[in-house]
Design a protein around this nucleic acid. Sequence first.
DNA 1: ATGAACATTGCAGATAACGCAACACTCCAG
DNA 2: CTGGAGTGTTGCGTTATCTGCAATGTTCAT
Lengths: 253, 253
Amino acid sequence: MSQTVDRALSILPLLAEGPADLGQVADRLGVHKSTALRLLRTLHEHGMVYRQSDQRYRLGARLISLAQEAMENLDIREIAHPHLVRLNESCGHTVHLAVYEEDEVLYIDKVESRYPVRMYSRIGKPVAITVAAVAKLLLADLPEHERRALADKLDYPMYTSRSTPNAPAFLRELDKVREQGWATDLGGHEESINCVAAPIRGADGKVVAAMSLSAPNVVVTADELLTLLPLVRRTADEISGEYSGKNPAKDPV
Amino acid sequence: MSQTVDRALSILPLLAEGPADLGQVADRLGVHKSTALRLLRTLHEHGMVYRQSDQRYRLGARLISLAQEAMENLDIREIAHPHLVRLNESCGHTVHLAVYEEDEVLYIDKVESRYPVRMYSRIGKPVAITVAAVAKLLLADLPEHERRALADKLDYPMYTSRSTPNAPAFLRELDKVREQGWATDLGGHEESINCVAAPIRGADGKVVAAMSLSAPNVVVTADELLTLLPLVRRTADEISGEYSGKNPAKDPV
DNA sequence: ATGAACATTGCAGATAACGCAACACTCCAG
DNA sequence: CTGGAGTGTTGCGTTATCTGCAATGTTCAT
């Protein structure tokens, strides 16, 4: 809607790919250098971009701290955290908390495994939306048309031979997940890593977040991990209860 | 420089304080509601803000994932990480990596303590700049006038009785730190937590990052922690070597 | 139903953003 | 030392773009 702001914001993802100089930014935006300069200056004043000693621009520190605040203010995150920690203490595996927002699923909290072999992931990172157990739960709860539209729009990278191959398969999987009320990812993202996940619901029954337990094959087999499912579901339900009790009319992320 | 962008960006820190509706945003920006609406719409299109079901605006997921990318692209972070992990393995304490950028010091990496009692901190969070050991190292390396200007501008909250009380004391501490080449924070932020830190330097000798070891009193005394200083300094020097070898002409964050 | 509070749209005027072109700077090569 | 190429930067006139207003929708609660 606002051309200037639109252009300025378009600079950010561009810089996320790596540092760029004024000319490169101007070219990729399709504007005159002087225009790009003014935009970058404004972004700079707000700390959203940083100028390195070689004059090139990078994303700035304020961006990082803003994102940090954004996450710390999430209600579910705060409520869920102690439960996640407790779950981790009782089984030792990696625990994740994720939310859905506008076509993306993000990890917003994580408790690291107590085993030496750990799964790679990072808070704030978008998850592999077509295979992650938490993503399945979050997307399965979307209204029919939205779910369909999103499924069509997605790419289906074959991380492994067990990755979800295409939209129809994904939609079928989502139906199954919605019905059973929990989800798994058995080697669909990383060959040797399995996850089981359960939904966290608000007072109106809508899924506001999802949590998962992840562990590599070398630590526990998929079957063994599945025996922990009831524990995960119980934890998720506890969080749901607390969330809907305390925040009757609020929305996630 | 660009009024529209300036206003749009001003919305973000405002929303970081918590969700707000259109009217509140317009008021705090000092613009008409329709103007605020257009700005918010543009931010929304870019995923920088999210609209909750109660119509209020929040910071959005794209902001979080952008910040994530910003951090993952930091060269020092990547180089330093394995060293930090190794240091953690050899002593078990919490390891932090931090950089300075435009009046802020941010943690950009962290390896959690292996002891049950842990220090609270989060990657991406601005550190307590007047007391943190890593902050002292990063600021001590600034040019005289910049350091002075910054020191005057800062607040000096008394987190504990041992916090840095004011600008002159801080500048004196920075001088000491610069001279000795390492820094400590002995209960200046949290009464029971001590840190020792060492600088990471680029090829030109400038401090590009700082790393620290933190541990609560209940785990090790300050004196015991200080015995680990040589190990921390050695690790920092290794990182410096690798950084300046591989990236001769590049700048941190 | 009725109104209050809020979000949204269309519009005309005016500001503020645009691109241009000229200028400064740095870094090499000759 | 000098020229030239590749940058980043500045001033300015034009016009597109943003703005604030006022009217219209929308969503609640009474």
